[in-house]
Design a protein around this nucleic acid. Structure first.
Lengths: 162, 162
DNA sequence: TTACGTGCAAAGGCTTTGCAGTCGG
DNA sequence: CCGACTGCAAAGCCTTTGCACGTAA
């Protein structure tokens, strides 16, 4: 179900092409950030991306990380999310791959799912209300299988849950 | 379709009861903020609420607005939204009233809609993935009828859109 | 060469926190 | 009275901006 991120190299390559098409410099930093977005699993934040690069001894300034992410989003190669955590997350998009998210409220894990009927319904609903549908997002918050199980176990021994 | 906010007085009253039940002080500021959330249309931000109160010559500190909103959210009487604008919005909830949002990307207008099938589908999908569904949100971004029309008009006269 | 990018640090916008004074129950 | 709240200002967090220097093409 859940889509794997686009091949890192594929995204980097497409980003490079995007930049060249616009006569924009293809810099080391831009390529590194693009690569990190696909390399780091689970919808990384800007900070997470920067730390991933740091671990690999690649120093890129915070401002550059943000500026590059903005370019990636504009290019359509990366999707931006706000799960209400106080910071944004990013995710590489392999085209024609629409999917939504389940977010675990306990451990923060993010799982993807897709359902065509769901997507189409929203377009219809927008249409009925005379809205021009451009994009949408669907997020389900709850407990992932692991945390859900852990909850049950925690409840069993004695009496009341916290 | 779109639900009207709960009667202001109803919400204030229920909030007061909520506080009393927990032996928490029912203060003037708390009641004013609660009232403002339902009075101000269109999913106000904390700032919007504070300014609404200021216009009515009611001075409530920013911190108090935020602290009260947190209580309101915890009480379940108010829903919190993050439409990715860099700030949060709030909305009073008249119970058993589940609805989702259409957000105009041009003028920021927010329209509500509800669709039971949609809601149920998400519960089913979560279930299939062994997730415990607690809540979800669905947001459609696009152009409201007005802005959509304005766009057409703007395109008609001569050649290219801006 | 030259426009555009990068790093750095400072500034910004929203939200939270610490603390002394105040007030609801 | 006492615990909880309020206002105020400062601090926090993520993100953006200004500017001098560096670099892709």
């Amino acid at each position: 179900m859940a889509s794997r991120p686009a091949e890192p190299d594929a995204l980097v390559e497409r980003f490079a092409r995007y930049l060249r098409d616009r006569r924009l410099p293809v810099t080391r930093q831009r390529m590194e950030v693009a690569q990190a977005v696909t390399r780091v699993a689970d919808h990384p934040s800007a900070d997470r991306i920067q730390r991933d690069l740091a671990e690999r001894k690649i120093r890129v300034a915070t401002a550059t990380v943000y500026r590059t992410l903005e370019l990636l989003v504009q290019s359509g190669l990366v999707r931006e999310h706000d799960f209400g955590e106080g910071f944004r997350r990013f995710e590489s998009v392999s085209e024609q791959d629409r999917h939504e998210h389940l977010i675990c409220q306990r451990c923060g894990k993010v799982v993807e799912f897709s359902n065509d009927r769901l997507e189409r319904m929203l377009e219809l609903i927008a249409d009925e209300l005379d809205f021009l549908h451009r994009r949408h997002r669907i997020e389900v918050y709850g407990l992932c299988p692991d945390c859900r199980r852990r909850d049950l176990v925690a409840l069993r021994p004695s009496g009341a849950p916290s």
